[in-house]
């Protein structure tokens, strides 16, 4: 296993019931890559991301995260240092101030005592303030999170990832619930931060347009198989048309 691999999948498969959600899959993602996962609904993008994140275990195959077998990560705390996750905007605890939602990124570093103390007297506040500053929300430190707009909440989630300092970020439809202008804004910010921190980014996306605009490599998944895996420049309109073409009995149902 070379040291440059962030994620390496060997013959990884997953099925729910009798049908394959993911057919045996080989995937190699190097450190510093920006990868977009696209494909029709229910094609297996989310399953693929969840396997990369270690939240679901594959039925078969080998997964290495940051050069180590996924099973060697003893706990969520260790895994959190390698991989950070951002999903749709409903991921934050709405009733807490923004500050606590950002500091939640440090929970993997903190013991129980410090977390309890921080809940009453926020610890490492400057780290959270710096992170919020970088996503342009420095004035929202003490606002109640549920009062923020969808785009702002996603930026808070980005600030949390900055505080968490993982080596790679997995994003599952991070902008699906935002309007086009805000989606572009948040995605641009995500990509900029990933590049500044020299991280790896794998993101599933609905929008082919956004995938082309921000990512170097596009992996298309259809019916649980890799449909194409190409540098963005080589992806043609025909590829996209074929990818999203409906086949009888497939593609329209979620998962």
């Amino acid at each position: 296993m070379s040291d440059t691999a962030m994620f390496a999948m060997k013959q990884v498969s997953k099925s729910y019931g009798s049908a394959y959600t993911l057919h045996p899959l080989n995937l190699h993602i190097s450190r510093g890559e920006l990868v977009a996962l696209i494909g029709p609904s229910g094609a297996g993008k989310t399953t693929c991301l969840n396997i990369l994140a270690g939240t679901i275990e594959p039925d078969a195959g080998l997964l290495h995260i940051a050069g180590k077998p996924a099973s060697s990560y003893a706990s969520g705390k260790h895994l959190a240092k390698a991989v950070g996750i951002i999903r749709q905007q409903f991921d934050l605890v709405g009733s807490l101030p923004v500050l606590h939602n950002v500091l939640a990124g440090r929970l993997h570093e903190w013991g129980f005592g410090k977390s309890l103390l921080s809940f009453l007297f926020p610890q490492d506040k400057h780290i959270a303030a710096d992170a919020l500053n970088r996503v342009g929300l420095s004035d929202k430190l003490y606002d109640k999170t549920s009062h923020l707009s969808g785009g702002e909440q996603q930026r808070v989630a980005l600030a949390r990832l900055l505080v968490q300092q993982p080596q790679a970020i997995l994003a599952d439809e991070p902008v699906a619930s935002l309007d086009p202008a805000r989606a572009e804004d948040v995605l641009a910010m995500l990509v900029r931060l990933v590049q500044e921190e020299q991280l790896t980014l794998v993101s599933s996306l609905h929008s082919v347009h956004l995938a082309r605009q921000f990512f170097q490599r596009i992996i298309a998944i259809k019916e649980g198989r890799v449909f194409f895996d190409l540098p963005t420049a080589d992806v043609t309109e025909d590829h996209i048309t074929d990818l999203y073409q409906l086949t009888a009995g497939h593609g329209m149902d979620e998962r």
Partner: peptide, 8 residues
């Protein structure tokens, strides 16, 4: 999400 950011 808290669980995936490493919270016990």
């Amino acid at each position: 999400n808290l669980a995936s950011s490493g919270a016990s």
